[in-house]
Design a protein around this nucleic acid. Structure first.
Lengths: 339, 339
DNA sequence: TTGTACGCGTTATCAT
DNA sequence: ATGATAACGCGTACAA
């Protein structure tokens, strides 16, 4: 009995042929007699031969792995995107390595270095909210690693991008609020330095302007993070204003739920006293009371498309010439938290 | 100018020394003159030398990667565990490969084969709800790959396990309901064939028995899945009973929220007409109305401990002799959805 | 149709 | 203190 796992050498010795012949037989090389091919395959099967991918990796100078860099996965948003990515990649030869930057530029840098060390073949990334400089991604590209950016844009970086029309989503939501008679609409904006924050804010502003509603700067408060707790203080700040708003458009559902929570504490009725609209359409948003109006994003599709684009680069090296920019349309979902 | 990345050979040639000397210098081998060591390191720095991990992998027959197999990540539970795992592993030499079984035994099998092919060094796993046979994990163990099971037990499998005392959590919750005067307590049980489902059900049953409350079989309904929608029909079924229960202990927060949703539709007041307690303490559970009483689990710690145990096996091969079994205590969190 | 020889980048062993 | 050589497992150009 041999120790260790069986290699092509073992098969070769057993069959009294050269290892290279075994290799060719296994790979269906045309110039191999059917006879020997069958013999090799039969023995490989019998011996439960497993090709050593580690050896292949070295030979081909690639790890057959793609890196996915996301800020976090405890929320539903990135988890769903990752699920979409996974469902595409799983049918390919590649493996996925998911890396969490924890919304930190430093950690993102460390991750990129790591991925580069293990000779990753491609990268899917949604940058941290701290990231303003994208040279680390450019370095990846320079060493021939295709980079696909999703959800959060990296302004100035030339790369494939799969985004959502946040502006459109926000505009729709705010116009809806205006259409239902709301006059004083506040915006709980996202953390600064994020493309999504900027675009949703701009959609909000433009919707007001288009409808000749003056912007009240006190009505715009940015939250420090993406979780429920991050929305509490900003919500209070807004609801304590002398001229209390009659509607809130929140950066995401978590924040919207915080706002609902605070509004209820203030004794306000939703949506009679105040309308609230979120963003993301998280699963539970439909089951809370009142059910939350929100802006749905095609998260799963975004994940799938991002992965497909990356795969296409990995398969045809010449595809890399042109960068694609795909922008999904979000959809307004009206439920009970808005008039 | 050289093409490709710089290797120790390049450094060796440049310095007119042997590649092996370069290797030793880089690895701080004791028997190397400080002079040459410095020269080598300086040049390596200057040339931005990066060791080729792919070559090392082949040499050491290990991928420096550990696999994490979970049923899904769209919920908060596994996402938080993974975050804990990640935060421990990131400080080690290892990389993480997260794999989603989608609650499917077949996919879990495929994943295990894949991981085994890429010569994974260790595995952290929470089995799918379909998985009844654990031979695929045993095969991993046989080939020397340590396996750590977390959250969902694999009965009969000898491996390290990091679990939660679901029985205790359920028992506490139900005793609390009894203590607040509830007489007719229903249980929305989890999907069948899961250790967590069994243990929570048993905790429920034993709490009733201890308090001399007869078990009403109509009060026990199992949900088909873990999401909100999976709880709707079972909730209706329970709330439509002639003898409507005055409390529901739900398998998890999602299901509990479904139950709240349905109860409200039935015109019931929570907690006046019916108390509801969930399990997991998801982030939003504190912000819905009424805020959800639930059973908190130390998810992040579970992830960290699981990862630490795996790392300890990876470092000392002899640690593998004894399997650890760590059971965390969950904690009852009373909020407004229960009397 | 098949075998030989080499290389991928690194480290370990054995010399020197 | 350092160099030469082999080895990890595989694929492939070249030779036969």
């Amino acid at each position: 009995m041999k120790k260790g796992r069986v290699t092509i050498k073992d098969i070769a010795r057993e069959l009294n042929i050269a290892p290279s012949t075994v290799s060719r037989a296994l790979n269906d090389h045309p110039a191999i007699k059917k006879e020997t091919k069958d013999a090799v395959k039969a023995l490989a099967e019998a011996l439960d031969y497993q090709p050593n991918l580690l050896a292949l990796n070295l030979l081909q100078k690639k790890s057959n792995t793609i890196g996915v860099i996301v800020p976090e996965i405890t929320g539903h948003f990135f988890s769903a995107i990752i699920t979409g990515i996974q469902d595409v990649i799983v049918d390919s030869e590649y493996n996925i390595m998911i890396c969490l930057s924890n919304e930190s530029y430093e950690e993102e840098l460390t991750i990129v270095k790591r991925l580069s060390k293990i000779q990753i073949d491609g990268v899917l990334v949604s940058p941290s909210s701290e990231t303003k400089n994208f040279d680390h991604f450019r370095r990846l590209q320079k060493s021939g690693i295709p980079v696909v950016v999703f959800d959060r844009d990296c302004p100035g970086l030339e790369a494939d991008k799969v985004l959502v029309d946040d502006y459109f989503g926000a505009f729709q939501a705010v116009e809806y609020l205006i259409g239902t008679g709301c006059k004083n609409i506040a915006h709980l904006g996202g953390p600064l330095n994020l493309s999504t924050t900027d675009h949703r804010l701009q959609g909000y502003l433009d919707a007001l302007e288009k409808n000749n509603i003056e912007v009240n700067k006190e009505y715009i408060v940015h939250v420090p993070g993406f979780n429920h707790k991050d929305g509490i203080k900003p919500s209070k700040k807004i609801l304590e204003l002398k001229k209390r708003p009659d509607a809130i458009f929140a950066y995401n559902d978590n924040i919207a739920i915080s706002a609902m929570h605070v509004a209820k504490k203030f004794g306000l009725k939703i949506p009679e006293d105040i309308s609230i609209i979120g963003f993301d359409d998280e699963p539970h948003s439909n089951f809370i009371t009142p059910s939350l109006s929100t802006v749905w994003q095609p998260v799963y599709s975004m994940g799938m498309l991002s992965a497909r684009i990356l795969l296409s680069h990995l398969n045809d090296k010449n595809t890399a010439l042109k960068f694609r920019r795909e922008v999904f349309k979000p959809e307004l979902v009206i439920r009970a938290s808005s008039r």
